[in-house]
């Protein structure tokens, strides 16, 4: 039994190490150099210059802010809706397979096709949403070029795309909740809502933690949806960088402009930021536990 834990994790670490970790570490190397995508062999040592430049760059701080805002307004409703949806899918349903597959269609639909639909919906001139707003007497909004409007629009795409995905994850975990817990709860006279609150949610805690972590990471790296929402030169996130997330800023720098060194520094800053959040989280929860 002693060696077996390592045997169990080794396939993962071998493949993961070779084809994910090593290339990632290579980008850490890039982040310490001045290196252009067009001239990879010509690297000059830059030390922490790339990182220092970021700290003094308004674009970096802006994209951090954008990421935070879009992250909050997309992740929170998405996870709450997902857990509710999973709860509903967990009832005895007619055609349960069909419902589940349908909930996964946003994730399976081609992002490009989906974004085109949203671009049409949010179109400034003649889009359906502005048309509806007009009905209630609101002036048309230039969604792509408005500060909060664009963040809202991008968030709706994210929510649309990932809610069903998270619901399935919750659903799987709900299946593992022992039935006795519900039986004893209902014997105690708990109604459905109380059962949900006092049995389901506590039992789902590890999975909720998982989805929160993964969604936070996903929100930090968000770039596909805003990129396509922006259309031509979408990597800028609008003329005022209103929806240029960190992921998009990195894509713009590395892939469009070709500053690979700087883009790598952005990537690793994202790592450091998340690490910082994790450490703070750990300290706070430890403090809380002590005080209890």
């Amino acid at each position: 039994m002693k060696a077996s834990p390592y045997a169990f994790i080794s396939p993962f670490f071998i493949f993961f190490g070779a084809f994910s970790l090593v290339p990632l570490l290579y980008t850490a190397w890039y982040s310490l150099h001045n290196v252009q995508l067009s001239d990879l062999d010509n690297q000059t040592w830059a030390g922490l210059d790339n990182y220092q430049n970021l700290l003094s760059s308004d674009f970096f701080w802006n994209s951090l802010w954008v990421t935070l805002v879009i992250g909050v307004i997309s992740t929170v409703p998405q996870l709450i809706m997902a857990i509710g949806l999973a709860h509903l899918l967990n009832y005895k349903l007619r055609g349960s397979t069909v419902w589940r597959v349908v909930m996964l269609t946003p994730y399976a639909t081609s992002v490009a096709a989906a974004t085109l639909v949203f671009v049409l919906l949010y179109s400034w001139d003649g889009g359906m949403i502005n048309w509806l707003l007009d009905f209630v007497g609101v002036d048309p909004i230039n969604w792509r070029e408005s500060d909060w409007g664009s963040k809202f629009a991008v968030s709706t795409i994210v929510i649309w795309r990932w809610t069903g995905y998270n619901a399935l994850i919750y659903l799987a975990a709900m299946q593992a909740i022992p039935a006795d817990l519900y039986e004893s709860a209902s014997l105690d006279g708990a109604n459905r809502w109380q059962q949900f609150r006092h049995v389901t949610v506590p039992q789902l805690r590890p999975t909720i933690l998982f989805t929160v972590v993964v969604s936070t990471i996903g929100a930090t790296q968000l770039f596909g949806e805003p990129l396509l929402f922006g259309g031509v030169s979408g990597s800028k996130g609008g003329s005022g960088h209103d929806y240029q997330t960190l992921g998009l800023y990195m894509y713009d720098q590395g892939w469009v402009i070709g500053n690979l060194g700087k883009a790598s520094a952005i990537a690793w800053s994202m790592f450091l930021i998340l690490l910082l959040i994790a450490v703070i989280n750990l300290l706070v929860s430890r403090r809380l536990r002590k005080s209890q």
Binding site: P23, G247, W255, M270, F271, L274
Partner: peptide, 10 residues
């Protein structure tokens, strides 16, 4: 936590 898009190059 590290976005994979750049790791494509190496």
């Amino acid at each position: 936590m590290i976005p994979p898009q750049l790791a494509i190059v190496p």
